[in-house]
Design a protein around this nucleic acid. Structure first.
Lengths: 226, 226
DNA sequence: GTCTATAACGGGATAGAC
DNA sequence: GTCTATCCCGTTATAGAC
Protein backbone atom coordinates (compact mmCIF):
# COMPACT_ATOMS: atom_id res chain seq x y z
CA UNK A 1 0.00 0.00 0.00
CA UNK A 2 2.96 2.30 0.48
CA UNK A 3 3.85 1.79 -3.19
CA UNK A 4 0.68 1.25 -5.20
CA UNK A 5 0.49 -0.71 -8.38
CA UNK A 6 1.84 0.66 -11.62
CA UNK A 7 -1.61 1.20 -13.08
CA UNK A 8 -2.84 3.11 -10.04
CA UNK A 9 0.23 5.29 -10.02
CA UNK A 10 -0.38 6.19 -13.65
CA UNK A 11 -4.02 7.02 -12.98
CA UNK A 12 -2.96 9.24 -10.09
CA UNK A 13 -0.29 10.98 -12.13
CA UNK A 14 -2.57 11.49 -15.12
CA UNK A 15 -5.30 12.86 -12.88
CA UNK A 16 -2.97 15.43 -11.40
CA UNK A 17 -1.41 16.45 -14.71
CA UNK A 18 -4.73 16.62 -16.57
CA UNK A 19 -5.97 18.96 -13.85
CA UNK A 20 -2.89 21.14 -13.96
CA UNK A 21 -2.20 21.34 -17.70
CA UNK A 22 -5.28 20.04 -19.50
CA UNK A 23 -5.60 16.91 -21.59
CA UNK A 24 -3.84 18.11 -24.73
CA UNK A 25 -1.26 19.85 -22.54
CA UNK A 26 -0.29 16.61 -20.81
CA UNK A 27 2.03 14.19 -22.60
CA UNK A 28 2.16 10.50 -21.88
CA UNK A 29 5.83 10.99 -21.19
CA UNK A 30 4.93 13.41 -18.42
CA UNK A 31 2.46 10.92 -16.98
CA UNK A 32 4.86 7.99 -16.94
CA UNK A 33 7.66 10.23 -15.72
CA UNK A 34 5.60 11.48 -12.77
CA UNK A 35 4.41 7.94 -12.02
CA UNK A 36 7.95 6.64 -12.10
CA UNK A 37 7.14 3.99 -14.66
CA UNK A 38 8.27 3.32 -18.18
CA UNK A 39 6.70 5.05 -21.14
CA UNK A 40 5.55 1.78 -22.68
CA UNK A 41 3.56 0.88 -19.55
CA UNK A 42 0.82 3.35 -20.40
CA UNK A 43 0.18 1.65 -23.71
CA UNK A 44 0.22 -1.78 -22.13
CA UNK A 45 -2.32 -0.86 -19.45
CA UNK A 46 -4.57 1.54 -21.33
CA UNK A 47 -3.81 1.26 -25.02
CA UNK A 48 -4.25 4.89 -25.94
CA UNK A 49 -4.18 8.29 -24.31
CA UNK A 50 -7.93 8.60 -24.82
CA UNK A 51 -8.62 5.34 -23.01
CA UNK A 52 -6.44 6.58 -20.15
CA UNK A 53 -8.57 9.72 -19.90
CA UNK A 54 -11.75 7.64 -19.84
CA UNK A 55 -10.44 5.53 -16.96
CA UNK A 56 -9.19 8.56 -15.04
CA UNK A 57 -12.59 10.18 -15.39
CA UNK A 58 -14.68 7.10 -14.63
CA UNK A 59 -12.68 6.23 -11.50
CA UNK A 60 -13.92 9.34 -9.73
CA UNK A 61 -17.18 10.22 -11.43
CA UNK A 62 -18.66 6.74 -11.27
CA UNK A 63 -18.75 6.44 -7.47
CA UNK A 64 -19.85 10.06 -7.06
CA UNK A 65 -22.82 9.57 -9.37
CA UNK A 66 -23.82 6.40 -7.55
CA UNK A 67 -23.78 8.38 -4.31
CA UNK A 68 -25.94 11.08 -5.89
CA UNK A 69 -28.56 8.62 -7.04
CA UNK A 70 -28.51 6.77 -3.72
CA UNK A 71 -29.06 10.06 -1.92
CA UNK A 72 -31.93 10.98 -4.20
CA UNK A 73 -33.41 7.51 -3.76
CA UNK A 74 -33.29 7.89 0.00
CA UNK A 75 -34.93 11.31 -0.13
CA UNK A 76 -37.73 10.11 -2.36
CA UNK A 77 -38.28 6.98 -0.27
CA UNK A 78 -38.66 8.99 2.91
CA UNK A 79 -40.89 11.53 1.19
CA UNK A 80 -43.41 8.84 0.30
CA UNK A 81 -44.39 10.23 -3.09
CA UNK A 82 -44.59 13.88 -2.06
CA UNK A 83 -42.45 16.46 -3.88
CA UNK A 84 -39.02 17.17 -2.41
CA UNK A 85 -37.67 20.53 -1.33
CA UNK A 86 -35.53 22.14 -4.01
CA UNK A 87 -32.69 22.56 -1.53
CA UNK A 88 -32.75 18.85 -0.71
CA UNK A 89 -32.55 17.95 -4.40
CA UNK A 90 -29.56 20.20 -5.01
CA UNK A 91 -27.84 18.98 -1.90
CA UNK A 92 -28.17 15.44 -3.21
CA UNK A 93 -26.64 16.63 -6.48
CA UNK A 94 -23.82 18.76 -5.13
CA UNK A 95 -22.80 17.42 -1.74
CA UNK A 96 -21.48 14.01 -2.84
CA UNK A 97 -19.05 15.44 -5.35
CA UNK A 98 -17.76 18.20 -3.10
CA UNK A 99 -17.45 16.05 -0.03
CA UNK A 100 -15.83 13.13 -1.81
CA UNK A 101 -13.42 15.30 -3.76
CA UNK A 102 -12.38 17.17 -0.64
CA UNK A 103 -11.81 13.95 1.22
CA UNK A 104 -9.67 12.63 -1.64
CA UNK A 105 -7.84 15.94 -1.94
CA UNK A 106 -6.66 15.62 1.64
CA UNK A 107 -4.85 12.49 0.54
CA UNK A 108 -3.22 14.22 -2.39
CA UNK A 109 -5.77 13.15 -4.99
CA UNK A 110 -7.02 16.44 -6.32
CA UNK A 111 -9.40 15.44 -9.08
CA UNK A 112 -11.87 18.33 -8.88
CA UNK A 113 -10.03 20.46 -11.38
CA UNK A 114 -9.61 17.44 -13.64
CA UNK A 115 -13.38 16.96 -13.77
CA UNK A 116 -14.05 20.65 -14.14
CA UNK A 117 -11.58 20.85 -16.96
CA UNK A 118 -13.05 17.97 -18.92
CA UNK A 119 -16.12 20.10 -19.52
CA UNK A 120 -13.97 22.56 -21.43
CA UNK A 121 -12.45 19.97 -23.72
CA UNK A 122 -13.47 19.62 -27.38
CA UNK A 123 -16.93 18.15 -27.84
CA UNK A 124 -15.67 14.94 -29.42
CA UNK A 125 -13.80 14.21 -26.19
CA UNK A 126 -16.43 15.38 -23.74
CA UNK A 127 -19.65 14.14 -25.21
CA UNK A 128 -19.03 10.40 -24.94
CA UNK A 129 -17.97 10.88 -21.32
CA UNK A 130 -20.99 12.95 -20.41
CA UNK A 131 -23.43 10.72 -22.26
CA UNK A 132 -22.09 7.69 -20.47
CA UNK A 133 -22.01 9.11 -16.97
CA UNK A 134 -24.66 11.78 -16.74
CA UNK A 135 -27.67 10.64 -18.74
CA UNK A 136 -29.24 8.92 -15.75
CA UNK A 137 -28.32 11.74 -13.38
CA UNK A 138 -29.93 14.34 -15.59
CA UNK A 139 -33.07 12.26 -16.06
CA UNK A 140 -33.63 11.56 -12.38
CA UNK A 141 -32.87 15.05 -11.08
CA UNK A 142 -34.91 16.73 -13.79
CA UNK A 143 -37.88 14.59 -12.79
CA UNK A 144 -37.43 15.42 -9.11
CA UNK A 145 -37.20 19.14 -9.87
CA UNK A 146 -40.28 18.97 -12.08
CA UNK A 147 -42.28 17.51 -9.21
CA UNK A 148 -40.88 20.07 -6.77
CA UNK A 149 -41.67 23.01 -9.06
CA UNK A 150 -44.83 22.05 -10.96
CA UNK A 151 -45.37 25.58 -12.26
CA UNK A 152 -42.02 25.70 -14.06
CA UNK A 153 -42.18 24.63 -17.72
CA UNK A 154 -40.17 21.53 -18.62
CA UNK A 155 -37.90 23.49 -20.95
CA UNK A 156 -37.17 25.99 -18.23
CA UNK A 157 -36.18 23.25 -15.81
CA UNK A 158 -33.73 21.80 -18.32
CA UNK A 159 -32.33 25.24 -19.08
CA UNK A 160 -31.85 26.21 -15.45
CA UNK A 161 -30.35 22.84 -14.60
CA UNK A 162 -27.75 23.57 -17.25
CA UNK A 163 -26.93 26.81 -15.42
CA UNK A 164 -26.53 24.81 -12.22
CA UNK A 165 -24.08 22.58 -14.04
CA UNK A 166 -22.18 25.72 -14.95
CA UNK A 167 -21.96 26.75 -11.31
CA UNK A 168 -20.84 23.30 -10.27
CA UNK A 169 -18.14 22.90 -12.90
CA UNK A 170 -16.84 26.33 -11.96
CA UNK A 171 -16.62 25.30 -8.33
CA UNK A 172 -15.01 22.00 -9.27
CA UNK A 173 -12.51 23.70 -11.53
CA UNK A 174 -11.29 25.52 -8.44
CA UNK A 175 -12.14 29.01 -9.68
CA UNK A 176 -14.55 29.61 -6.84
CA UNK A 177 -11.97 28.79 -4.20
CA UNK A 178 -9.44 31.03 -5.92
CA UNK A 179 -11.90 33.91 -5.76
CA UNK A 180 -12.61 33.22 -2.10
CA UNK A 181 -8.96 33.07 -1.16
CA UNK A 182 -8.36 36.45 -2.76
CA UNK A 183 -10.70 37.79 -0.09
CA UNK A 184 -9.06 35.83 2.69
CA UNK A 185 -11.80 33.27 3.05
CA UNK A 186 -11.32 29.50 3.18
CA UNK A 187 -14.76 28.01 3.60
CA UNK A 188 -15.59 24.63 5.00
CA UNK A 189 -17.21 21.97 2.88
CA UNK A 190 -20.51 22.52 4.57
CA UNK A 191 -20.42 26.29 4.13
CA UNK A 192 -19.58 26.03 0.47
CA UNK A 193 -22.28 23.44 -0.18
CA UNK A 194 -24.82 25.56 1.68
CA UNK A 195 -23.90 28.62 -0.35
CA UNK A 196 -24.05 26.88 -3.71
CA UNK A 197 -27.27 25.07 -2.85
CA UNK A 198 -28.89 28.27 -1.63
CA UNK A 199 -27.81 30.17 -4.72
CA UNK A 200 -29.04 27.54 -7.14
CA UNK A 201 -32.30 26.89 -5.33
CA UNK A 202 -33.12 30.58 -5.27
CA UNK A 203 -32.20 30.83 -8.94
CA UNK A 204 -34.52 27.94 -9.74
CA UNK A 205 -37.38 29.55 -7.88
CA UNK A 206 -37.03 32.79 -9.83
CA UNK A 207 -40.12 33.72 -11.84
CA UNK A 208 -39.89 32.82 -15.52
CA UNK A 209 -38.28 35.88 -17.01
CA UNK A 210 -39.74 37.67 -20.00
CA UNK A 211 -37.27 39.38 -22.31
CA UNK A 212 -37.22 43.12 -21.81
CA UNK A 213 -38.72 45.23 -24.57
CA UNK A 214 -35.48 47.15 -24.92
CA UNK A 215 -33.40 44.11 -25.69
CA UNK A 216 -34.44 43.91 -29.32
CA UNK A 217 -33.40 47.46 -30.00
CA UNK A 218 -29.95 46.89 -28.54
CA UNK A 219 -29.50 43.74 -30.58
CA UNK A 220 -30.53 45.45 -33.77
CA UNK A 221 -28.18 48.34 -33.12
CA UNK A 222 -25.29 45.98 -32.57
CA UNK A 223 -26.02 44.10 -35.75
CA UNK A 224 -26.01 47.33 -37.70
CA UNK A 225 -22.72 48.44 -36.20
CA UNK A 226 -20.92 45.17 -36.90
CA UNK B 1 -12.29 43.84 -47.34
CA UNK B 2 -13.17 40.65 -49.20
CA UNK B 3 -9.72 39.30 -48.33
CA UNK B 4 -8.62 40.70 -44.99
CA UNK B 5 -5.04 41.27 -44.00
CA UNK B 6 -2.81 38.37 -43.09
CA UNK B 7 -2.77 39.32 -39.43
CA UNK B 8 -6.55 39.51 -39.19
CA UNK B 9 -6.96 36.18 -40.94
CA UNK B 10 -4.62 34.57 -38.44
CA UNK B 11 -6.51 36.08 -35.51
CA UNK B 12 -9.76 34.77 -36.96
CA UNK B 13 -8.35 31.31 -37.56
CA UNK B 14 -6.74 31.12 -34.12
CA UNK B 15 -9.96 32.25 -32.49
CA UNK B 16 -11.94 29.51 -34.19
CA UNK B 17 -9.39 26.77 -33.55
CA UNK B 18 -8.78 27.75 -29.93
CA UNK B 19 -12.53 27.49 -29.40
CA UNK B 20 -12.79 24.12 -31.10
CA UNK B 21 -9.68 22.34 -29.81
CA UNK B 22 -8.33 24.36 -26.92
CA UNK B 23 -5.07 26.28 -26.71
CA UNK B 24 -2.70 23.37 -26.28
CA UNK B 25 -4.73 21.39 -28.81
CA UNK B 26 -4.20 24.00 -31.51
CA UNK B 27 -0.91 24.07 -33.39
CA UNK B 28 0.46 27.10 -35.15
CA UNK B 29 0.51 24.98 -38.28
CA UNK B 30 -3.23 24.55 -38.01
CA UNK B 31 -3.70 28.29 -37.53
CA UNK B 32 -1.60 29.30 -40.52
CA UNK B 33 -3.07 26.48 -42.58
CA UNK B 34 -6.62 27.60 -41.88
CA UNK B 35 -5.70 31.22 -42.47
CA UNK B 36 -4.07 30.34 -45.77
CA UNK B 37 -0.79 31.96 -44.84
CA UNK B 38 2.69 30.67 -44.33
CA UNK B 39 3.80 29.15 -41.07
CA UNK B 40 6.49 31.77 -40.54
CA UNK B 41 3.95 34.59 -40.71
CA UNK B 42 2.65 33.87 -37.23
CA UNK B 43 6.10 34.40 -35.77
CA UNK B 44 6.61 37.57 -37.72
CA UNK B 45 3.32 39.11 -36.61
CA UNK B 46 3.04 37.81 -33.05
CA UNK B 47 6.39 36.38 -32.03
CA UNK B 48 5.13 33.47 -29.95
CA UNK B 49 2.02 31.36 -29.59
CA UNK B 50 1.36 32.93 -26.20
CA UNK B 51 1.40 36.43 -27.64
CA UNK B 52 -1.04 35.28 -30.31
CA UNK B 53 -3.41 34.05 -27.63
CA UNK B 54 -3.18 37.36 -25.79
CA UNK B 55 -4.10 39.28 -28.94
CA UNK B 56 -6.93 36.91 -29.80
CA UNK B 57 -8.35 37.33 -26.32
CA UNK B 58 -7.89 41.08 -26.05
CA UNK B 59 -9.47 41.75 -29.44
CA UNK B 60 -12.86 40.54 -28.20
CA UNK B 61 -12.76 41.00 -24.44
CA UNK B 62 -11.43 44.55 -24.50
CA UNK B 63 -14.41 46.10 -26.34
CA UNK B 64 -16.91 43.99 -24.40
CA UNK B 65 -15.54 45.14 -21.07
CA UNK B 66 -15.62 48.76 -22.20
CA UNK B 67 -19.26 48.28 -23.11
CA UNK B 68 -19.96 46.76 -19.69
CA UNK B 69 -18.41 49.68 -17.84
CA UNK B 70 -20.13 52.21 -20.08
CA UNK B 71 -23.47 50.56 -19.39
CA UNK B 72 -22.85 50.56 -15.66
CA UNK B 73 -21.76 54.20 -15.85
CA UNK B 74 -24.98 55.10 -17.62
CA UNK B 75 -27.08 53.26 -15.05
CA UNK B 76 -25.38 54.92 -12.14
CA UNK B 77 -25.58 58.35 -13.75
CA UNK B 78 -29.31 58.05 -14.27
CA UNK B 79 -29.84 56.65 -10.78
CA UNK B 80 -28.38 59.77 -9.21
CA UNK B 81 -26.57 58.04 -6.34
CA UNK B 82 -29.37 55.65 -5.44
CA UNK B 83 -28.70 51.88 -5.43
CA UNK B 84 -29.38 50.04 -8.68
CA UNK B 85 -31.66 47.07 -9.15
CA UNK B 86 -29.78 43.78 -9.07
CA UNK B 87 -31.27 42.79 -12.42
CA UNK B 88 -30.01 45.99 -14.01
CA UNK B 89 -26.49 45.35 -12.72
CA UNK B 90 -26.39 41.82 -14.09
CA UNK B 91 -27.84 42.93 -17.39
CA UNK B 92 -25.01 45.42 -17.69
CA UNK B 93 -22.58 42.60 -16.95
CA UNK B 94 -24.07 39.91 -19.18
CA UNK B 95 -25.85 41.56 -22.06
CA UNK B 96 -22.82 43.17 -23.76
CA UNK B 97 -20.90 39.93 -24.05
CA UNK B 98 -23.85 37.85 -25.24
CA UNK B 99 -25.15 40.43 -27.68
CA UNK B 100 -21.76 41.26 -29.12
CA UNK B 101 -20.68 37.64 -29.42
CA UNK B 102 -23.93 36.68 -31.12
CA UNK B 103 -23.62 39.52 -33.56
CA UNK B 104 -20.07 38.47 -34.38
CA UNK B 105 -21.09 34.82 -34.60
CA UNK B 106 -23.52 35.65 -37.37
CA UNK B 107 -20.53 36.77 -39.40
CA UNK B 108 -18.63 33.59 -38.72
CA UNK B 109 -16.62 34.89 -35.77
CA UNK B 110 -17.55 32.53 -32.98
CA UNK B 111 -15.40 33.64 -30.08
CA UNK B 112 -17.70 32.75 -27.18
CA UNK B 113 -16.32 29.28 -26.77
CA UNK B 114 -12.80 30.65 -27.07
CA UNK B 115 -13.40 32.97 -24.12
CA UNK B 116 -15.20 30.31 -22.13
CA UNK B 117 -12.38 27.90 -22.73
CA UNK B 118 -9.66 30.25 -21.60
CA UNK B 119 -11.05 30.00 -18.09
CA UNK B 120 -10.25 26.29 -18.08
CA UNK B 121 -6.64 26.74 -19.12
CA UNK B 122 -3.74 26.31 -16.69
CA UNK B 123 -3.47 29.12 -14.17
CA UNK B 124 -0.19 30.43 -15.54
CA UNK B 125 -1.97 31.10 -18.84
CA UNK B 126 -5.25 32.40 -17.47
CA UNK B 127 -4.23 34.56 -14.57
CA UNK B 128 -2.33 37.24 -16.48
CA UNK B 129 -5.25 37.54 -18.90
CA UNK B 130 -7.85 37.82 -16.17
CA UNK B 131 -5.81 40.21 -14.06
CA UNK B 132 -5.34 42.50 -17.02
CA UNK B 133 -8.90 42.51 -18.27
CA UNK B 134 -11.17 41.90 -15.32
CA UNK B 135 -9.75 43.69 -12.30
CA UNK B 136 -11.69 46.87 -13.02
CA UNK B 137 -14.85 44.97 -13.95
CA UNK B 138 -14.83 43.04 -10.71
CA UNK B 139 -14.17 46.15 -8.65
CA UNK B 140 -16.94 48.21 -10.19
CA UNK B 141 -19.63 45.54 -10.24
CA UNK B 142 -18.84 44.38 -6.71
CA UNK B 143 -19.29 47.95 -5.52
CA UNK B 144 -22.59 48.31 -7.35
CA UNK B 145 -23.88 45.02 -5.92
CA UNK B 146 -22.80 46.00 -2.42
CA UNK B 147 -24.89 49.17 -2.68
CA UNK B 148 -27.84 47.27 -4.11
CA UNK B 149 -27.74 44.61 -1.37
CA UNK B 150 -26.52 46.38 1.77
CA UNK B 151 -27.47 43.45 4.01
CA UNK B 152 -25.19 41.00 2.19
CA UNK B 153 -21.69 40.70 3.73
CA UNK B 154 -18.83 41.75 1.49
CA UNK B 155 -17.38 38.24 1.44
CA UNK B 156 -20.71 36.82 0.37
CA UNK B 157 -20.95 39.27 -2.51
CA UNK B 158 -17.54 38.27 -3.78
CA UNK B 159 -18.36 34.59 -3.38
CA UNK B 160 -21.67 34.80 -5.20
CA UNK B 161 -20.21 36.94 -7.95
CA UNK B 162 -17.76 34.12 -8.54
CA UNK B 163 -20.73 31.77 -8.99
CA UNK B 164 -22.17 34.20 -11.52
CA UNK B 165 -18.89 34.05 -13.39
CA UNK B 166 -19.31 30.28 -13.44
CA UNK B 167 -22.74 30.61 -15.00
CA UNK B 168 -21.49 33.06 -17.57
CA UNK B 169 -18.43 31.08 -18.63
CA UNK B 170 -20.65 28.03 -18.98
CA UNK B 171 -23.00 29.93 -21.24
CA UNK B 172 -20.10 31.37 -23.22
CA UNK B 173 -18.50 27.95 -23.60
CA UNK B 174 -21.66 26.94 -25.43
CA UNK B 175 -22.71 24.23 -22.98
CA UNK B 176 -25.93 25.99 -22.19
CA UNK B 177 -26.97 26.14 -25.82
CA UNK B 178 -26.09 22.48 -26.29
CA UNK B 179 -28.37 21.58 -23.40
CA UNK B 180 -31.16 23.71 -24.81
CA UNK B 181 -30.88 22.25 -28.27
CA UNK B 182 -31.20 18.75 -26.85
CA UNK B 183 -34.67 19.83 -25.80
CA UNK B 184 -35.47 21.41 -29.12
CA UNK B 185 -35.15 24.98 -27.94
CA UNK B 186 -33.15 27.73 -29.63
CA UNK B 187 -33.63 30.84 -27.58
CA UNK B 188 -33.19 34.39 -28.72
CA UNK B 189 -30.50 36.61 -27.27
CA UNK B 190 -33.03 38.47 -25.22
CA UNK B 191 -34.62 35.33 -23.80
CA UNK B 192 -31.28 33.87 -22.81
CA UNK B 193 -30.12 37.10 -21.20
CA UNK B 194 -33.39 37.38 -19.31
CA UNK B 195 -33.11 33.83 -18.05
CA UNK B 196 -29.52 34.14 -16.90
CA UNK B 197 -30.11 37.55 -15.33
CA UNK B 198 -33.19 36.30 -13.52
CA UNK B 199 -31.40 33.20 -12.27
CA UNK B 200 -28.37 35.10 -11.01
CA UNK B 201 -30.36 37.92 -9.46
CA UNK B 202 -32.56 35.48 -7.57
CA UNK B 203 -29.48 33.57 -6.47
CA UNK B 204 -27.91 36.77 -5.19
CA UNK B 205 -31.01 37.63 -3.22
CA UNK B 206 -31.04 34.26 -1.47
CA UNK B 207 -30.71 34.49 2.32
CA UNK B 208 -27.20 33.82 3.60
CA UNK B 209 -27.16 30.07 4.03
CA UNK B 210 -26.07 28.43 7.24
CA UNK B 211 -24.45 25.01 6.91
CA UNK B 212 -26.83 22.24 7.89
CA UNK B 213 -26.10 20.43 11.11
CA UNK B 214 -26.01 17.11 9.31
CA UNK B 215 -23.21 18.11 6.98
CA UNK B 216 -20.45 17.55 9.50
CA UNK B 217 -21.49 14.00 10.16
CA UNK B 218 -21.47 13.16 6.48
CA UNK B 219 -18.06 14.70 6.03
CA UNK B 220 -16.62 12.78 8.97
CA UNK B 221 -18.04 9.52 7.71
CA UNK B 222 -16.49 10.07 4.31
CA UNK B 223 -13.10 10.83 5.79
CA UNK B 224 -13.20 7.63 7.80
CA UNK B 225 -14.14 5.57 4.76
CA UNK B 226 -11.42 7.00 2.53
C1' DG C 1 6.05 41.43 -45.62
C1' DT C 2 6.07 36.81 -47.20
C1' DC C 3 8.31 32.83 -48.65
C1' DT C 4 11.33 28.08 -48.39
C1' DA C 5 14.03 25.33 -45.74
C1' DT C 6 15.55 23.50 -41.67
C1' DA C 7 16.90 23.25 -36.97
C1' DA C 8 15.99 21.11 -32.56
C1' DC C 9 12.96 18.84 -30.02
C1' DG C 10 8.79 16.31 -28.16
C1' DG C 11 4.70 13.73 -29.44
C1' DG C 12 2.04 8.97 -29.52
C1' DA C 13 2.62 4.47 -30.65
C1' DT C 14 4.92 -0.14 -31.34
C1' DA C 15 8.22 -4.22 -31.68
C1' DG C 16 10.52 -7.37 -29.35
C1' DA C 17 13.84 -8.72 -25.56
C1' DC C 18 13.61 -10.12 -20.82
C1' DG D 1 4.24 -7.12 -16.67
C1' DT D 2 8.02 -4.22 -17.55
C1' DC D 3 11.88 -2.86 -20.05
C1' DT D 4 14.93 -0.66 -24.19
C1' DA D 5 15.02 1.05 -28.50
C1' DT D 6 13.02 3.02 -32.28
C1' DC D 7 9.62 4.65 -35.84
C1' DC D 8 7.45 8.37 -37.77
C1' DC D 9 5.35 12.40 -37.43
C1' DG D 10 4.17 17.05 -35.56
C1' DT D 11 5.77 20.85 -32.77
C1' DT D 12 7.67 25.75 -32.11
C1' DA D 13 10.92 28.62 -33.67
C1' DT D 14 14.56 30.62 -36.66
C1' DA D 15 17.67 31.73 -40.70
C1' DG D 16 17.97 33.74 -44.80
C1' DA D 17 16.34 34.27 -49.81
C1' DC D 18 13.17 37.17 -52.37
Amino acid sequence: MASPKTKTRMLDAAERLFAAHGIAGTSLRAVTGEAGVNLAAVHYHFGTKDALLREVFARRVGPVNEARLARLDALEASAGGRPLAVEAIFTALLAPVIEQSRADAQQGHDWRRMVGRVYAEPVEVVEPLLRQHFAEIERRFTAALARALPDLPAGEIAARLSLVVGVLTHVLAGQHEIALRQHGEVPSDAAMIARVVGFCAAGFRAPVAAPRAGARRVQTALRRRA
